[in-house]
Design a protein around this nucleic acid. Structure first.
Lengths: 114, 114
DNA sequence: CTAAACCATGAACAATGGTCTATTGTTTCT
DNA sequence: AGAAACAATAGACCATTGTTCATGGTTTAG
């Protein structure tokens, strides 16, 4: 599929998709047309992009995402991938705890000072 | 207390403290010394800074923090403050859910593709 | 056919959140 | 007294995460 369709389906803008691609989060191939150089995106780009959107909101950096993408690449050692992802999961869980703390502080602030 | 002590106690660097101050997250007064213009920070700056550190990690922006600080200011309407903070709490909880989703995706990735 | 919509590429621009440097003055330790 | 540590201020600098722009070509709908 082409970038426009991908953008529309994923809810990620063309520009951001290109940005992600420049940063190695997704890849595309140049189509086989003789007349244009439009790029072609596979289905799994869509899956990734949807994941990226949530992951960015959850606070993961582009670099984090790249490391996950790279880890899950075909070429990569399954155990390495497992370790990388497990590590990210731990980080995220810690972040979730952090949020709980912050919420508690805020709720205390609400009820606290008079 | 002076900025160095505050930095050391809060774990937030001097530069960052000054940055936060420039951005209205904390305030200080110029001490009453005749010879210097060292700034003076009160105890509650320390409390705030500790909160800021956690809140930033949890994904709140400096602007978010400022709105909370402003809302809790003496001058401010209690109900407005309540609303602002309640709103931030909702946002944080949603972020926490987002994290859960991302973790699920990652765990699925771990067990999923062989 | 032709205007509107789409695409590629590269570079510039922007906001956020700091961090570092330069300069100058103050305090404190020995 | 003199060195080391601390402080204030202003401005430069940096990475991250996009967005916008300029340019030029392609496709598609009417």
């Amino acid at each position: 599929m082409r970038i426009g369709e991908l953008a529309q389906k994923s809810g990620v803008s063309r520009d951001t998709i290109r940005f992600y691609e420049r940063n190695g989060l997704i890849t595309s191939t140049v189509g086989d047309s003789e007349t244009n150089s439009y790029r072609n995106y596979k289905e799994d780009c869509l899956v990734w992009l949807q994941f990226f959107a949530g992951a960015r909101e959850a606070g993961m950096s582009v670099a984090d995402l790249r490391s996950i993408v790279e880890a899950t690449a075909e070429s990569c050692d399954r155990d390495v991938a497992r370790a990388v992802i497990q590590h990210k999961i731990e980080e995220l869980k810690e972040r979730a705890n952090q949020i709980v703390d912050v919420v508690q502080f805020l709720e205390k602030t609400l009820s606290g000072p008079k």
